[in-house]
Amino acid sequence: MNVVVDLNRCQGYAQCAFLAPEVFAMHGEEALLYHPVVPDGQQERVLRAVAACPVQAILVGEEAGTGER
């Protein structure tokens, strides 16, 4: 499973960093860092983060990040 965050949409609500902290991390209070390839065992948490994002900036799927949608 792969993840892409649309950083133009991201407003730093940090819901993903709470709900899947091994995949998404806040650098300071605004910048977001994330692992584009979701580690094993983190899929459920990532799906929670996707649903929780208040600006729906997280794209997830087998193809995310390969330029396909």
């Binding site: 940090a14 709470f18 902290p21 991390a25 209070e29």
Partner: peptide
């Protein structure tokens, strides 16, 4: 409570 200082608390 949460990130950036305590990111794992809720999880």
């Amino acid at each position: 409570f949460g990130p950036p200082h305590n990111p794992g608390r809720i999880d």
